[in-house]
Amino acid sequence: MSAEPRPPTASGLSLDGVGHDYLRDGRPVPALAPVSLDIPAGQFACVIGPSGSGKTTLVRAMAGLLRPSRGTVRVGGAPVTGPPTGLAMVHQEYGRSLFPWKTVRDNVDLALLNSGRGQRDRRAAVTEALHLVGLPDVERAYPWQLSGGMQQRVAIARAVVAQPRILLMDEPFAAVDAQTRADLEDLVRDLWHRLPLTVVFVTHDIDESVYLGQRVVVLGRPPAGVRADVPVPLPDRRDQVTTRAAVEFTDLRAELYGQIAAAKLG
């Protein structure tokens, strides 16, 4: 496992005053207060915030799935106007983002449809991606024949198979049990180490954000924007038992708890 610096092929993300209002019955409802952030290439950034603070809105703006009412998202310097190439997303609800009419293999292969690569090449890439997420031998199964944790692994395989430079994850592990969640967290860290990736990881879970990230961004409900943006002073090599017991971990966790509590009030 290599430590920083990251390989140079990952792309950075920058947000310049990105805010959004939804229209409800013709009236604007503020969902995301203007956020300015710079996520350098290769960084693992976590975003936390209370429910309704606009985390999903923010990720969808980054993914080009939503045109924010204000501000600009840039990927690798270029403004985002639609889903950018080289960016992949993993949703919280794996059950809905995998297609039940496709086998696991075809679900993953979907990301390669327009890659211009040949059938055999694609097949090999799919197999490799499934190996990478620890899922050999289920290529011909359907997603609904797998457990929740396995389905989320398939979704991750689909996200990384096309070798994206940015991986966005919106509360990807909220719906799996604790043990599976720990496994998947280590999987994501491992993938990030192995591949040239910038990761933006949204979560409800303060512990998860500290355990995973190099940096934690705390979002507040509108009109508050970014309430805190703190580096994670933990070593690159992390471990479910020792890392979570480290003093730096518990200190930062306590601090973030305070921030979130304040964010909920404000």
């Binding site: 939804y22 229209l23 013709g26 799935l65 939503l66 045109r67």
Partner: peptide
């Protein structure tokens, strides 16, 4: 889930 920019506002 926001239907996205493809759907006209309102």
């Amino acid at each position: 889930v926001d239907p996205g920019p493809a759907v006209p506002a309102g």
